[in-house]
């Protein structure tokens, strides 16, 4: 299919990158911008602010809702659905969207605030993490895989906010998540089961209670490593940071033996579509595994047999 046809067919979304990726992990934004349009997902940038995050919510839920409403109203104004790169942002925006669609008197109050900046929340947009969209159009993903990641053994960490609260996220079973694993298998890689799969990564406490957060990292890494994993795969920038930079800090402090690099899911998609490790931003990660890198470099193009 030629490029123009594809551009016309492509559904456009308002990309909600989120602060963590924008400011701390820009290589993830880079890979998302590269890969999503190749999967027929059009993206547009709007003047979004912080979603806002759970820390902000812990100070004042009303303001949290006001700021989230502004973000939702911006997308509504453009007639676009929101596509999240971060489960935390996605959760905030989905919850605010649900509350404001449901509670009309609260909506009226919030709209008075939004009126000051010329915006209105009408309840016309939807919010989804990109994995939800990829899972819905799995055939497109399968078509684009040219270099299957055969033999790469991955520990899947879905994290918390893509799953819970399940009445809001409506994506997967929080007790036994399997969709990210399915998406990983679609790329040809192998997923390994490990005992601590559903344990939270502990990122939120890394700043304030490093001792707790570090022990969580140690248990996650040890459990995945001893189960045979070569890397983690995550859908979340906070989990990514926890398993990347923070893993090295935890390792130094607790002196554990093992280490595992981490991939954001779209980095793996990029590799399976033929980009190299550099092009998917792998080298911006702090935890490296030369053995795994060699294995990835040796992957070969899928043989296409036309019958």
């Amino acid at each position: 299919m030629n490029r123009m046809n594809r551009m016309n067919r492509m559904k456009q979304y308002a990309l909600f990158t989120g602060c963590t990726i924008k400011a701390a992990l820009p290589h993830i934004e880079m890979v998302a911008r590269k890969v999503l349009p190749l999967l027929d997902i059009g993206i547009k940038e709007l003047a979004f602010t912080c979603c806002p995050n759970a820390d902000f919510r812990s100070t004042d839920e009303y303001s949290w809702l006001v700021v989230a409403a502004r973000n939702l109203a911006l997308a509504e104004k453009e007639g676009l659905e929101i596509l999240g790169l971060c489960p935390g942002c996605t959760q905030t925006l989905r919850e605010a969207n649900m509350v404001l669609k449901d509670d009309v008197s609260l909506r009226a109050e919030i709209n008075k605030r939004l009126g000051k900046i010329g915006l209105t929340f009408k309840g016309t947009t939807e919010v989804n993490h990109h994995l939800v969209v990829l899972h819905r159009q799995i055939d497109i993903l399968l078509q684009r895989v040219t270099i299957p990641l055969y033999g790469i053994k991955l520990a899947v960490h879905t994290g918390c906010h893509l799953l819970m609260p399940s009445r809001i996220m409506q994506f997967d079973n929080p007790e036994q998540p399997r969709k990210l694993g399915e998406l990983v298998k679609m790329l040809g890689s192998t997923i390994i089961n490990y005992p601590e799969e559903t344990l939270c990564c502990g990122f939120t406490l890394f700043g304030s209670h490093k001792d707790i957060a570090s022990r969580i990292i140690r248990d996650k890494v040890e459990s995945a490593f001893l189960s045979g994993a070569e890397a983690f795969v995550v859908p979340c920038p906070s989990c990514y940071q926890q398993f990347d930079r923070n893993q090295l800090v935890a390792k130094r402090e607790l002196k554990f033996e093992y280490q595992l690099p981490v991939f954001y899911y779209l980095q793996l998609v990029g590799l399976a579509m033929g980009f190299d490790l550099d092009e998917v931003g792998y080298y911006h990660g702090r935890v490296r595994s030369p053995g795994l890198e060699d294995k990835i470099k040796l992957l070969v193009k899928k043989t296409v047999v036309n019958l």
Partner: peptide
């Protein structure tokens, strides 16, 4: 730190310093 983090978002729009 929570109060400062909140202030950063309100003044810059981001939860990380630019």
């Amino acid at each position: 730190e929570r109060i400062d983090a909140r202030e950063l978002i309100i003044t810059t729009g981001f939860s990380y310093p630019i």
